Amino acid sequence: MSGSEHITRVRKLYKLIFRVHRALPPELRIMGDNYAREEFKRHKTCNPEESRIFLNEWTDYAINIARQMKPLQQAKKKTIGKYIDPKLLDHMTDEQIVQLYELHKAATQPYTNDSEETNSESRK
């Protein structure tokens, strides 16, 4: 794959991920958009093998989320995402495991809309 083809593929995937995120609940969309943005920045200069793995994983992610966001799927399951195979943890670096933990903490915290809190406090 030539350099320009690779760049085109990355851009299309990046845009697809943000389009798929539009169907997510607002709090998950914000978190997902920020996470995807940071990951794509972080992998901007990775080697070709890492790039191949990165693009395959994000493509699988986009397909998985798109399937889960279909109205019929939402009516049936009402869940988003999937569990990580624990065997994958053995192949992750310490930095990746910390990042995964931080993402887990952010995802499991109760959602608070700062603008609503600010508006309600200013009314008091």
Rank of each mutant, 00 (worst) to 15 (best):
K70Y: 11
Q73F: 14
N56K: 12
R67Q: 10
R42T: 03
P110Y: 06
K12A: 13
K77C: 06
I7L: 10
E117I: 15
R67P: 04
I84C: 14
M69A: 03
M69Q: 03
Y101M: 15
K87W: 06
I65T: 02
I65M: 06
E116M: 13
N113Q: 11
H21T: 04
E49L: 10
N56R: 05
P26Q: 05
E121D: 13
V10L: 00
H21I: 03
G3N: 05
N47F: 04
D90Q: 11
L72Y: 11
K76D: 12
S115L: 08
E117W: 13
S115Q: 13
D60L: 07
T118L: 15
R9Y: 00
Y111A: 08
V10Q: 00
H43Q: 13
R9K: 04
G32V: 01
L55Q: 00
K124L: 14
M31N: 07
C46D: 10
K77V: 02
V10D: 00
E27D: 14
L16T: 07
K41N: 04
A23R: 01
K124Q: 12
Q109H: 08
K105C: 15
E117Q: 15
G81R: 05
L28A: 10
A66T: 00
R123N: 14
P71R: 02
Q74R: 12
D60N: 11
R52T: 01
D85P: 03
M92I: 06
Q99M: 07
A62G: 00
D114S: 13
A66H: 02
I30P: 05
V98Q: 11
E49V: 12
L28V: 07
Y111K: 09
R42N: 07
H91R: 07
L16M: 06
T112N: 04
K41E: 05
M69T: 03
A66W: 02
T93Q: 14
L103C: 03
G32S: 15
E116C: 08
S2R: 06
N64I: 09
R37W: 13
L55T: 00
R19T: 09
N119I: 15
